[in-house]
C-alpha cells in the first residue's frame, strides 16, 4: 500500500484552486483568439477582446478571472493500492479551504434554505472513483452558479433517440440565451441513470476543448450538436454571432432498457479547471 502525505495533497489542491481561478486554460484562450478573428459580429468580437484582456489582467494581478470562483468540484481517481493518511476527502477539503482563503477567491456556498454562507466554500463536491494501481489523480473545476442554473437533466423515452437528444440540447441553449455567459461549453451525459448522467456530463467538461473523442461515432455526434447549437446565433454574451458554443463534449454510458437519460451541463466561457497527479 502506497502512502501519500495528506499535506502534499492539500498543498497541491490549494495551489490548483488559485491557479485555475487566475489563469485561463490555453485551450480556452486559443478559442477566444479564434473567435476574435472569425466572429461575424462586431459586438461579439468586442466580447472576445475584453475576455482576452481580462485573462491577461487576471494572470498579472492574480485577481480571479471571474468573481464567481464557483463551488469546488473534484473528480478523483484513487488507486486501490494507495491511501492518503487521514483520508482523501479531508485532505482535498483542507486544501480547497486554504486555496480559497489565501487566494482571495469568493466563497459561494450557502445553506439552501437560510441562505447563510458557509464562510469557507465548504463542502467541496468530491466524486471518487476507485481505480487499479497506486496512483492518485485529482481534477478540480471551479463551477459557477450562473451556468449551472442553466443545466438540466431529463429522462427521454428510448424512442426519442438522437433526434430527441438534439432537440432537447438545442432548446436548452436557446432558452438559456445570454444567461450562462456564452459562448458556452456543453458537457452532455447520455445514458446511465438519473444521477449518473449529470455526473459524467460534468466530468466531460474536463476534456480539452480541441480534443477529438476517440470513438468516431461520438466525435461525429459532438460535431453535429456543436453545429446545430451555433446556428442559434445567440453569440458572445447574447449579443449575436456565430460563437454561441465553443465545444460539445459527450460522455455515454449504458442505461436501462426503459430509459434514455440525458444531462446537459452548461459551462460558461470561463472554463476553469486543472488536474494534479501523485
Amino acid at each position: 500500500m502506497r502512502e501519500i502525505k495528506a499535506a502534499d495533497v492539500s498543498a497541491a489542491v490549494a495551489r490548483m484552486c488559485v491557479s485555475a481561478n487566475t489563469k485561463l486554460p490555453d485551450d480556452v484562450r486559443r478559442k477566444f483568439e479564434e473567435g476574435l478573428k472569425n466572429e461575424t459580429t462586431e459586438a461579439g468580437k468586442e466580447i472576445f477582446r475584453q475576455l482576452l484582456e481580462n485573462a491577461d489582467l487576471a494572470f498579472e494581478t492574480k485577481l480571479p478571472l471571474c468573481q464567481d470562483c464557483g463551488l469546488a468540484i473534484f473528480y478523483v481517481e484513487l488507486g486501490e493500492d494507495a491511501r492518503v493518511e487521514g483520508g482523501v476527502n479531508a485532505a482535498i477539503t483542507a486544501g480547497m479551504v486554504a486555496g480559497y482563503k489565501d487566494g482571495f477567491l469568493r466563497k459561494s456556498s450557502c445553506d439552501p434554505m437560510t441562505r447563510k454562507n458557509t464562510g469557507d466554500n465548504t463542502p467541496a463536491i468530491i466524486h471518487i472513483d476507485l481505480v487499479p494501481g497506486d496512483r492518485l489523480k485529482i481534477s478540480y473545476m471551479a463551477k459557477g452558479g450562473g451556468s449551472e442554473n442553466m443545466s438540466r437533466v431529463t429522462m427521454l423515452a428510448p424512442s426519442q433517440g438522437w433526434e430527441g437528444i438534439k432537440k432537447f440540447v438545442v432548446q436548452r441553449v436557446a432558452e438559456a440565451g445570454p444567461n450562462p455567459c456564452p459562448p458556452v461549453i456543453l458537457g452532455i451525459g447520455i445514458g446511465g441513470t438519473f444521477e449518473y448522467a449529470p455526473k459524467i456530463a460534468k466530468k466531460a467538461l474536463l476534456r480539452k476543448l480541441d480534443d477529438t473523442h476517440p470513438d468516431p461515432k461520438i466525435a461525429a455526434m459532438e460535431a453535429e450538436l456543436l453545429a446545430e447549437v451555433n446556428k442559434l446565433g445567440i453569440g458572445p454574451m447574447g449579443l449575436g454571432g456565430s460563437y454561441t458554443c465553443l465545444a460539445v463534449k459527450i460522455a455515454m454510458a449504458p442505461c436501462h432498457i426503459a430509459s434514455l437519460p440525458l444531462a446537459v451541463n452548461v459551462q460558461c466561457h470561463s472554463a476553469r479547471h486543472e488536474e494534479v497527479e501523485f
Binding site: 481580462n54 489582467l57 471571474c66
Partner: peptide, 13 residues
C-alpha cells in the same frame, strides 16, 4: 444595463 460576464478582473479596474 449589461456588463460583460466573466470579465470580473477587467471590470474591477
Amino acid at each position: 444595463f449589461g456588463a460583460t460576464g466573466g470579465a470580473g478582473a477587467l471590470l474591477s479596474k
